[in-house]
Amino acid sequence: MLKFTRRSLLIAVPLLAAGCTTTTSPRTRTVKPLIPDEYVAMYGAVDGEAFPVAATDLTRVEPQFLRRDVAYPTDQPPGTIVVDTEARYLYLVRENGRALRYGIGVGKAGLEFEGEAVVQYKRQWPRWTPTQAMIAREPERYGPLAAGMEPGVMNPLGPRALYLFKDGKDTLYRIHGTTEAWTIGKAVSSGCIRLLNQDIIDLYRRVPNGSRVVVLQGGNANSRQLPQV
């Protein structure tokens, strides 16, 4: 027959209590945000592409930068692309005061395009060639790529690109995809507008060649129409 002393009971109680608690400190516990099923589906892997398009890791994207239909009162006609670099949004203007809003990453300070342009042409899985200015700034990084990079999952333009021209001349400014989800909502690229790959595929199929593009910078606050979700 087992005998319990007062000392053995005092030792056992803390051990039993410890079995009912977690050993993980609240400060080290990682809690992933709850992502609605519609966005999980929207940003899932894309089938039927020339190269794999993986699902986007939505835990690395701020929720406000996910694609959605919003109220957008503007005098721009439907079909116009409006890029608000300061707010980090691209709007595709639709009928009845609405727009499709996409989160974007934009160019570093001093490298952004501003004004009006047109989508001269579009490309699926485009080649990428660094500009002469990029090669001059970072020859070790971009010099070996002067002849261009073949399409594929490592190509910085991603699965789609829209090429912007102004007055018949190439601005060297592109709207394109990215696999770096964490860059959406930030100023990180060398001047171009980047969208999540699923978003650029969606935008690509909605806009024809010749579509008008208006790029707003911070100084254009008076011409910016602030949307309401």
Score class of each variant (00 low, 15 high):
140 E>V: 10
140 E>T: 13
126 P>L: 00
49 E>C: 07
37 D>N: 11
126 P>K: 03
69 D>V: 13
96 N>C: 00
119 V>K: 01
1 M>N: 05
135 I>T: 05
104 I>C: 01
58 L>M: 02
139 P>R: 03
214 V>N: 06
24 T>D: 12
161 A>T: 05
135 I>R: 02
182 W>K: 14
139 P>G: 06
15 L>E: 06
195 L>N: 02
154 M>T: 14
53 V>L: 01
23 T>H: 14
67 R>S: 15
59 T>A: 07
75 D>V: 10
25 S>V: 00
15 L>V: 13
175 I>Y: 07
227 P>L: 06
50 A>C: 07
147 A>M: 13
86 E>V: 09
112 E>V: 14
141 R>F: 13
208 P>C: 02
201 I>Q: 03
99 A>L: 06
195 L>T: 00
178 T>V: 03
112 E>I: 12
51 F>V: 00
55 A>D: 02
127 R>C: 09
110 G>H: 02
142 Y>M: 07
167 D>R: 12
5 T>S: 15
80 T>L: 03
216 L>F: 11
136 A>M: 11
47 D>Q: 11
41 A>Y: 05
46 V>G: 00
155 N>D: 09
36 P>H: 05
103 G>T: 01
43 Y>K: 02
109 A>F: 09
89 Y>E: 01
82 V>S: 06
90 L>E: 02
222 N>D: 11
131 T>A: 07
66 L>G: 05
105 G>I: 04
83 V>H: 09
205 R>E: 15
68 R>Q: 14
166 K>L: 09
51 F>R: 00
154 M>D: 15
26 P>V: 05
107 G>Q: 04
75 D>A: 14
149 M>S: 11
6 R>F: 08
199 D>P: 03
9 L>V: 11
100 L>G: 08
87 A>K: 09
224 R>F: 08
209 N>T: 09
